[in-house]
Computed example of a mutant assay.
Amino acid sequence: MKTAVIASLVASAAAFAPAQQSRASTSVQAKPFENELGAMTPLGLFDPLGLIADGSKEKFDLLREYEIKHGRISMLAVTGYLTTAAGIRFPGAEGIPDGLKSFPALLETKDGQNVLLQMLAFFTIAEIVNRDASWTDAKAEFVGDYRNGALDFGWDNFDASTKLKKRTIELNNGRAAMMGIWGLVVHEMMGNSILPGGYLPGQ
């Protein structure tokens, strides 16, 4: 009991002590990119490996571009995974299983190989189109802005706060989708369903 009383007295005395300027708190406040898009509570700027600790804007923009790109791909992957798990197929592909077993099944037939070639062609075109076209006069507004003066969908009519909000939503949805597709694939490989009704793709 005495120890608790002494501890509380010390704590209350410390509350009235003048605040000390510590280098640690200054260095925490001086983190580069801590106010950039995506640095959100509760984690704030999450860089456990110190990849951007040197403050290189070029490196940060490159990693942000990778993050946005993989997020967009993962959103498509989750959509495709759940769509096929729901039993929806393109005409002629009704017999193709869903999940990871779809790839070996596609390789077994000429039609399936044709589908894989079409997928490869789509990926190639998407990779070429979805980048900043340096040969145009259009200037990217932010990292991941691949409109290149051709697409708008009303983006230019939004104010700055709305644009920031929508970019934050996309970034967070991409992060969730990256975790989502990873979780779906891992659970399928383990044989544990996380889908409604206990459905396991590929079975």
Rank of each mutant, 00 (worst) to 15 (best):
G197H: 08
F142E: 10
Y81N: 00
L120T: 06
A39T: 08
L151M: 08
D152E: 14
E141W: 11
A150M: 14
T124Q: 03
Y146N: 05
S56I: 13
N172E: 14
A93V: 04
P196W: 14
V186H: 12
A138L: 04
W155K: 08
G197P: 05
V186K: 14
L37D: 03
E141G: 06
L184H: 11
E170Q: 12
W135P: 03
P104K: 09
L82Q: 04
L116E: 09
F123Y: 02
S193E: 13
N192S: 07
M179V: 12
A140Q: 06
G144K: 01
L164P: 00
W155T: 02
N114W: 13
M190V: 07
M119W: 08
G44I: 13
R167P: 03
Y146S: 00
I125D: 02
T83Y: 08
L9K: 05
T109S: 12
A4H: 08
M119L: 06
P91N: 03
G197Y: 11
Y146P: 01
A160V: 12
T83K: 08
T41Y: 15
T84W: 03
E141M: 10
D54E: 15
V78Y: 04
K166Y: 15
I181H: 03
N192E: 14
Y146R: 00
A7L: 14
N173Y: 14
I88V: 10
N35C: 03
Y199H: 11
D54K: 11
Q203D: 10
M119V: 03
S22M: 13
Q203Y: 13
L151W: 10
P32N: 04
A4D: 08
S161N: 09
D132C: 02
G38K: 02
G149P: 06
